Simulated scan of single mutants.
Amino acid sequence: MRPTAIRPRPDQIAELTRGLHLPLPEVSSVHLEIIAEGLIRAFSGICLEAQATVASGSEAEVTALMVSRLNAMIEYEPLWGQLVLCVARGQESLSFDGSHLEKRPDLSIILSNQNRGFPLIAEAKIIDAATSKTEVLYCDNGIRRFVEGEYAWGNREAFMIAYVRDGSSISGKLVPFLSNAMTKAPPDYCIEELPVTIGAGEADMAISRHERPFTYLNSSALADGPGPISVWHLWLA
């Protein structure tokens, strides 16, 4: 069987975006904060009940636990249940031009008030220097996927989740790394704004902003380009 050719597929994009104008409207900061708080609660819960897996399991194992807990929360947390229809792991999606038909972001959070073809995307990565899982991998295999239109290309926001095992922090690791990347010409990861800390709780959380250089395929439903994306970083330990 011959492999599928990597090529733009305007018919796929036209069908996916039928009746839509992209990029979609912003998700309100209030709703994004509720989602961040839900992710924190879910992680705290699985830490209590599956400590060994959270401490030493693979990213896929930890994320699978997260998805199960987040979906269970729909049934017993009224506010979460009103906002979130379901959460999927590895749900297939298209890249921005249809070249890839089977992109699989780690978490697809389907919101009750947003188009189901464009869920809120969260990528998850382990941060553990002892196993060479550092901020470099986090950015190369995480942030870059949003910048290049692999994930969340119809949205204006996305999440990056870190399962931190070595005591790293956003201010100690991610900000210095992105600050250095920003000095390059052009800035690596298309950084417009470095991570800014948000929230007053114990969670390590920040927002960065990144330009996206790709353009949408020609369609009356789409603007010329997606504009920048806000990435909410949530480092959980």
Rank of each mutant, 00 (worst) to 15 (best):
T4V: 15
T4E: 15
A5C: 06
R7L: 14
R7C: 10
P10N: 09
D11K: 01
D11G: 06
Q12P: 00
E15V: 12
L16A: 13
G19E: 05
L20C: 08
P23T: 08
L24E: 08
E26Q: 13
V27L: 13
H31A: 15
A42Y: 02
S44L: 07
L48K: 12
E49V: 08
S56G: 14
E59H: 06
A60M: 05
E61T: 10
T63R: 01
T63A: 01
A64H: 07
L65N: 07
V67C: 06
R69M: 14
L70G: 12
Y76P: 00
Y76Q: 11
E77P: 00
Q82T: 13
Q82F: 12
L83S: 03
V84K: 04
V84H: 02
L85C: 10
Q91M: 12
L94F: 13
G98Q: 12
H100T: 03
K103G: 01
R104L: 07
N115E: 11
I121F: 12
A130N: 11
S132L: 13
S132P: 00
L137Y: 00
R145S: 04
G149Q: 04
Y151F: 14
A158N: 03
I161M: 11
G167L: 01
V175A: 03
V175E: 01
N180V: 05
A181Q: 04
T183A: 08
K184T: 08
P186H: 02
P187M: 02
D188L: 11
L194M: 04
V196R: 15
A203Q: 13
D204C: 11
S208M: 03
E211G: 10
F214E: 09
F214D: 08
L217A: 09
S219I: 09
A223F: 08
D224C: 05
P228H: 13
S230T: 04
H233E: 00
